[in-house]
Design a protein around this nucleic acid. Sequence first.
DNA 1: CTTTACTCTTGCCAAATGACAAGAAATAGG
DNA 2: CCTATTTCTTGTCATTTGGCAAGAGTAAAG
Lengths: 191, 191
Amino acid sequence: MQSLIQFIQNTVPIPLDKAKEIAAYFEERKIEKGNYFLQEGHKSNEYMFLLDGFMRAYATDTEGNDITTAFYTTNNVVFEVSSFFNRTPSKENIQALTPCAGLVISYDTLNNLFHGLPEFREFGRAVLVRGFSALKARMLGTITETAEQRYLTLLHTNPDIFQQAPLKMIASYLGITDTSLSRIRKEVSKK
Amino acid sequence: MQSLIQFIQNTVPIPLDKAKEIAAYFEERKIEKGNYFLQEGHKSNEYMFLLDGFMRAYATDTEGNDITTAFYTTNNVVFEVSSFFNRTPSKENIQALTPCAGLVISYDTLNNLFHGLPEFREFGRAVLVRGFSALKARMLGTITETAEQRYLTLLHTNPDIFQQAPLKMIASYLGITDTSLSRIRKEVSKK
DNA sequence: CTTTACTCTTGCCAAATGACAAGAAATAGG
DNA sequence: CCTATTTCTTGTCATTTGGCAAGAGTAAAG
């Protein structure tokens, strides 16, 4: 709970008591390793703050391969933007890669709070804007950089991911095969 | 003005008079061909609805090449999410590729309206969510599909772009060189 | 403890894409 | 109308990445 309050305050300027008031609407949730926070075809009804553990999102491409689209580390929010906000079936899965604990809030509660609490609204928007901007940066990197550069960037900015996710997932996240990633790592280690 | 009202109503369920009320806060803006709606290093203060014309956004990569990150067609909104909502200098440029006419609203006005008009808030969120979701889909396509598939998808979903933008811009948008795009077009035309 | 499944690496070769340069075609400006 | 610039294509060759298969190492399950 404390970490959520801090996360809110780090995201938007807001008095402590308001942050506490908001955080109080969240409920505890545990997810076992391998289990899902959201599954393809299901409608997402929850917005989560990850207190502990490690998760990933993945989509299934036309050939039936899993493509990891995101990793979620402790003290970040977890939600699928389209399914949650548009109230539509999800095209992706969000899965716990370790035992996870989080704080969740339902769509209805969140939406009511958005209308009643301007500070929470700002928070919600800031989270959306941050995610959108991060994805734009990732998109630009994917288009302009080599696989090796993208690997090195991820390694330096999110080293924890390499401790927790198998290389196959990291490879698909980077847009390459696990074979290529293995070779890139070999090349990089030579230098 | 009429087209903005329709755009609002197509985006969120909202009574006509509310849509008209919102639209009334926008002001006319003309941009000459080649001129900028937003330039790198400047803070974006405006959110625009494009009434007529064709625009693109582009970033400059580390080697100094222009990378087109988005195309904007008539009857769509135009803004740079990070600079506009975070009040920070933009990393990209938004440029008119033809003479353009739009309706703009300032950050301050928009923000005040967000707090005063729940319907406009919903609209703003829906636009953000739509853009975010579209980018996620594009990201997945970039990672999973070949350049030829991405080209064909763009050609079928946005044929107008090919009438208005030079292939070099389309190539950088697709994440390939203009040389490769030229070859892909040759291959495709054979079939 | 042992067997099974997954993870990661490596070799070989093919396919996709890029870099560079030249030339043709189209467009814009004077 | 003519010139200069941009756009598009094409050739050659190098580099990156993928596909497939085998094998070693590691973790999971009974």
